[in-house]
């Protein structure tokens, strides 16, 4: 179903914004006397307001401080069962030896030859696991896992990597609190 692409300004648009746009067009018009630009430098202002509920429905980013983590909870044990059913075919038993990326089983760390870049040895943030599994995995049915299931799978993979214990469970608070071993292993180069 298509959403309307209304040229009519949205009712939710603040008056302040219209005033600012008025200013921009005024500037352009003034400039126009001198240089006659072919089109306004600002856009025609067709953006439609997004409600907080709409943002909540589409925002699946999870940040290192835990922002974006949903309610829910999952145990390592539940994750182990889910992993066997939905992940193992590609990622292998206990996270290694499959057709897809190794998720565990790193033996000789980051200075070996070749180095073992697994979740436990390389990933700087545990929240990345939740963010990635929820949005991308499994490839045949992305977004099919419930939040509880994603917590459980995240917990299982972290336990395979020796980050948490087999009896543990994860939720938004405990996941954001995890400090990964390679947390300080990165040098930002062009992050400006």
């Amino acid at each position: 179903m298509s959403m309307p692409e209304s040229a009519v300004p949205s009712a939710a648009r603040p008056a302040e914004r219209a005033a600012r746009r008025g200013q921009q067009f005024a500037c352009t018009a003034l400039l126009g006397l001198l240089t006659a630009p072919a089109f306004p430098v600002a856009g025609p202002g067709l953006g439609q307001a997004l409600s907080a509920a709409e943002v909540a429905a589409i925002n699946i980013n999870v940040f290192p401080n835990g922002a974006g983590l949903p309610p829910g909870r999952g145990t390592v044990a539940a994750g182990q069962a889910l992993y066997a059913a939905r992940c193992e075919a590609c990622h292998g038993v206990r996270g290694s030896g499959g057709s897809a990326d190794e998720l565990a089983g790193g033996e000789h760390g980051l200075r070996g030859n070749p180095p073992d870049k697994t979740i436990g040895t390389y990933w700087p943030y545990a929240t990345t696991l939740f963010d990635y599994i929820r949005r991308s995995m499994p490839p045949s049915a992305p977004r099919s896992l419930s939040d509880d299931e994603v917590y459980a799978l995240t917990a299982y993979l972290l336990s395979l990597n020796g980050i948490i214990d087999e009896g543990d469970a994860l939720d938004a608070v405990s996941l954001a609190r995890i400090r990964m071993p390679n947390r300080d292993g990165f040098i930002p180069v062009d992050a400006r």
Binding site: N61, P124, T127, T128, D131, P188
Partner: peptide, 22 residues
């Protein structure tokens, strides 16, 4: 956001064991 493709991938491990990121 520290997504998988800016941490696990698209980062470059150096001999020191540190990795170039971004």
């Amino acid at each position: 956001v520290m997504a998988r493709n800016e941490t696990a991938k698209y980062t470059e491990l150096l001999p020191s064991g540190k990795a170039r990121q971004f």
